[in-house]
C-alpha cells in the first residue's frame, strides 16, 4: 500500500509539472526545454530555506515561487523574443546554465553531494510525515494547479495564447504585444514548476543537481506529448503513464538496474512512435 501511495505522490508532483509545461508547449506552442530548471529552483530554495534557515515549508515554497518568477522573468526577457526552433534551443541553453549553477555553486548547493535531510512540511503543528498525509498535500496542490490552469485557459488570455501558437505574426496585427503574453505564461509555468520542486524536495528529503537536468525536461515533454498537447487531463494521464510504466517493467522480471535504463529507452521509443502515428497524443487537441 505504501508503494502505491508513493507512486500517487509522484504522479501528483509530475502532474503539476506536466500541466504547467502544457501551458507553454500545448497552449502557447512554445517548445520549452527548461522546465526542469524551475522545478530545481523550487526544490533547492525549499531545501536550503527549510534545512539551513528553519523556514516553514509553505513559506519556503512561496519564496521558491517568487525566485522562480524572478528567474523566469529574466530568462523570459531574452527568449520571449524568439519563436519556433530558436525558442527551444534558447530554453535548452538556460536549463544547462541553471544545472551548472546547481552543480558548481558548492558553497550554496553542496554541488554533486546534494542536500540531504530536508524536513517534511508542518502546518499548525501537524507534520506531514506519513505518506498518506503527504499524498493529501501533493494531491491538493495538484488540484489547485489544475484549477488555476483551467482558469487561465478559459480566459481571454488563454485564447490569445492559443492564437500565438497558431500564428503569432498574424495575431500581432490585431494589437497584441505577444512577447508580453509569452513572458507572462513562461513565468506562470515556472511558478507552478517551482511548487512541484518544493513538494519533491520535502518528500524525498534530498535534492541533487541530476534530478533537474535536461533528461528531466525531456521526460516532462514526453508526458505532455503522450497525454496530449493543449489538454490538461492529457497532462495528468501522460504523467501517470510515464510514472507507472517503469514500475510495470520491474514486474516483468527485469532487475531494477535494467528497468531504470529501459525507462529512458521506452520514453524515446514512445516519442518516436507518437510522432509517427498519433502526434496529438492520447487526449491532445493540438499537433506539434
Amino acid at each position: 500500500m505504501d508503494y502505491i501511495i508513493h507512486l500517487l505522490i509522484f504522479i501528483s508532483i509530475y502532474a503539476i509539472l506536466a500541466m504547467s509545461l502544457n501551458l507553454l508547449v500545448g497552449y502557447t506552442g512554445l517548445l520549452s526545454v527548461t522546465h526542469a530548471a524551475f522545478y530545481g529552483v523550487g526544490a533547492y530554495t525549499t531545501a536550503l530555506l527549510m534545512k539551513f534557515a528553519g523556514f516553514n515549508f509553505f513559506i519556503a515554497l512561496a519564496i521558491g515561487v517568487v525566485i522562480a518568477l524572478i528567474a523566469s522573468f529574466l530568462i523570459g526577457l531574452v527568449i520571449s523574443k524568439l519563436s519556433g526552433d530558436y525558442y527551444a534551443l534558447g530554453s535548452l541553453g538556460f536549463n544547462i546554465i541553471v544545472f551548472t549553477i546547481f552543480l558548481n555553486w558548492q558553497t550554496l548547493t553542496r554541488g554533486p553531494l546534494g542536500i540531504p535531510g530536508i524536513p517534511r512540511p508542518e502546518l499548525f503543528g501537524f507534520t506531514f510525515s506519513g505518506n498518506i498525509a503527504y499524498l493529501a498535500l501533493s494531491f491538493a496542490f495538484a488540484v489547485l494547479v489544475y484549477l488555476a490552469c483551467r482558469f487561465i485557459i478559459g480566459s481571454s488570455f488563454g485564447r490569445a495564447l492559443k492564437a500565438i501558437r497558431e500564428d503569432e505574426e498574424a495575431l500581432k496585427c490585431f494589437g497584441y504585444h505577444t512577447s508580453v503574453y509569452k513572458l507572462v505564461i513562461f513565468a506562470i509555468a515556472a511558478g507552478f514548476a517551482s511548487v512541484a520542486g518544493a513538494l519533491y524536495a520535502s518528500y524525498i528529503t534530498f535534492v541533487d543537481p541530476t534530478t533537474f537536468y535536461l533528461p528531466e525536461s525531456v521526460l516532462l515533454l514526453s508526458m505532455i506529448i503522450l497525454g496530449g498537447l493543449s489538454n490538461l487531463q492529457g497532462s495528468v494521464i501522460g504523467a501517470a503513464v510515464l510514472i507507472l510504466l517503469p514500475e510495470a517493467l520491474r514486474f516483468v522480471g527485469f532487475p531494477d538496474t535494467i528497468a531504470a535504463q529501459l525507462r529512458l529507452f521506452v520514453y524515446g521509443l514512445l516519442i518516436v512512435l507518437l510522432m509517427l502515428y498519433r502526434p496529438q497524443g492520447i487526449r491532445g487537441e493540438y499537433k506539434l
Binding site: 490569445a160 492564437a163 501558437r165 497558431e166 500564428d167 498574424a170
Partner: peptide, 17 residues
C-alpha cells in the same frame, strides 16, 4: 492566415477581447 486549430468563434473573439 486564420488560427487553424481554433474554433471559428475563437478566431473572432480573440480580435475583440
Amino acid at each position: 492566415r486564420v488560427f487553424e486549430q481554433m474554433s471559428v468563434l475563437d478566431n473572432l473573439l480573440v480580435v475583440v477581447t
